[in-house]
Amino acid sequence: MTFSQKRSVLPGFGPTLGYAIFYLSVIVLIPLSALFFKTATLTWSEFLAAVSAPRVLASYRVTFGAAFFAAAVNGVFGVLVAWVLVRYRFPGRKLIDALVDLPFALPTAVAGITLASIYSPNGWLGRYLEPRGIAVAFTPLGIVVAMIFIGLPFVVRTVQPVLEDLDQEIEEAASCLGADRWQTFRRVIFPIMLPAILTGFALAFARAIGEYGSIIFIAGNMPMVSEITPLLIITKLEQYDYGGATAIATVMLAVSFLLLLSINLLQKWSRGKANDN
């Protein structure tokens, strides 16, 4: 059946759309607009001073830098895990596959205290790392470790469907044309996976920059050194510096929206590539 330009004949369009927009506005849009209105009460110079103070800039460096590094690690290892889960058979494969989603399901505070205790100087891993000079807990490296944990599923889950849908005929054709396995991977398979990898990277990055609970226990939370931007927002709130907190939150929100836009575009590219194949 084909449909004309008219909407579908099913009932309930008006009420459902109306309620959806109403609920969306009350819960999401109006509260978010409070952020912008509050920021608008600051003058430009107050706003710029609030978002570019040295402590704030340091928190951006820590947060965005650690998130980028962690997302990169997840990009590499996520592809590896996805490949192994899709292509190989080994005992416990289904269990590991389900376990990959653990960072989605585990509450952030639990992840936070667990990672902090494992990597602290007398923790399970910390007791071996600290004497060798690798300080993880209470340093920016700890922030990276926490961000790797929470971003782990993103790349795996975006790359897995691409690998699963990959037509073996393409690889067979490449092999028939004389490519060895590495060449086939590099020239045929990897380009197909690339949009998904970038999407997963962007998702992991976006999640990591906003994350709070998993990170504050293992980070040192020292201003200028290991303080993440969400923590700085809370600190300002506790000091009743609502203007400052709101200004920084606006910056974070703007970055989140930009990332959301990029992710949508990446997903469109990914779908386009998938349709080509």
Partner: peptide, 24 residues
């Protein structure tokens, strides 16, 4: 656009999510 708007809470930092309710 509606679908994108619905996805917004997913991409907002939890701290910012709490902050906006404090602001109101």
């Amino acid at each position: 656009l509606l679908v994108t708007l619905i996805d917004i809470p997913f991409s907002v930092s939890p701290v910012v999510s709490g902050l906006i309710y404090v602001l109101i």
